[in-house]
Amino acid sequence: MAHPVDPSGLGRVLSETMSALGQFTAGAESDAPPPEGHGEAADGLVQVTVGPPGRITALTLDPRAMRMASESLAEEVTEAVNAALADLQEKVTAVPGQIDLGSLGDQLRKIQEDAGRQFSAFTDALVEAQDRLARQGGK
């Protein structure tokens, strides 16, 4: 005799799925402003701010920087931009509340396995009920 199907088990699996997806979308819909990276060079005469996906949002040159040779100024700007990009990359990888996709994938695999067992039990119960009805109707 098959065990009765627990409909709350199916509800639990669906609830866990929605919860896991809710965690993912909550992280994606954060109200926090996008991170910025800051860098400087030439003792602060060159300052750069960057934002995702690696765009320069501000470049400030102190008037004294304009007295530098063009090659030197270009090197200092490059150094400041690279420092700002490194700062942005560090901030993006350390965003608090960021969803661990590996962990989310593990949770969803477990939920999928649980759902598979629940649906299998549900199907078995339906087949058994159909067989019982067919036997009763044949008597």
Rank of each mutant, 00 (worst) to 15 (best):
I111L: 04
V77P: 04
I99P: 13
E75T: 12
K91C: 01
V92S: 05
L108F: 10
E75Y: 11
E79L: 15
R109W: 10
R109G: 04
L85N: 08
E90F: 01
V81D: 06
L104T: 13
E75I: 01
A80N: 00
D100H: 09
K110Q: 10
E76H: 15
V81T: 14
S103G: 12
L101V: 14
I111M: 00
A80L: 03
A80Q: 02
L73Y: 04
E79V: 10
A84P: 03
G102H: 05
L101K: 10
K91E: 06
D87N: 14
G97Q: 08
L85K: 04
E76G: 02
N82I: 02
A94T: 15
L104Q: 14
K110F: 03
K110E: 09
L85T: 02
T93F: 00
T93E: 13
G102C: 01
Q112A: 10
N82D: 15
E90L: 02
T93P: 00
A83Q: 13
N82W: 02
K91L: 03
E76P: 03
Q112H: 12
A86I: 06
R109N: 11
D87A: 12
K110T: 09
A86F: 06
G102L: 04
L88V: 01
Q89F: 03
D87I: 05
E75H: 14
G105I: 05
D100Y: 08
T93S: 13
L108D: 06
D87L: 08
T78R: 07
A74F: 07
D100K: 07
K110D: 07
D106Q: 14
A84H: 04
G102T: 05
V81Y: 04
A86K: 09
L101E: 10
S103Y: 05
A74K: 11
E90M: 01
A74W: 07
A80Y: 00
V95F: 02
G105L: 05
E76V: 10
A80I: 01
S103H: 12
D87Y: 07
V92Q: 15
L85E: 11
V95W: 00
L73P: 01
P96G: 04
R109T: 13
L88D: 02
K110L: 06
Q112L: 06
G102R: 07
N82M: 11
L101H: 07
N82T: 09
I99H: 05
D100R: 08
T93D: 10
A94G: 13
V81W: 04
E75K: 14
N82S: 13
S72Y: 11
A94V: 13
V77R: 07
Q107M: 12
Q107W: 06
L73K: 02
L85V: 12
P96F: 09
I111N: 05
D106F: 04
R109M: 12
S103A: 15
P96E: 14
L88Q: 03
L104K: 10
I99T: 15
A80T: 03
V81Q: 08
Q98Y: 09
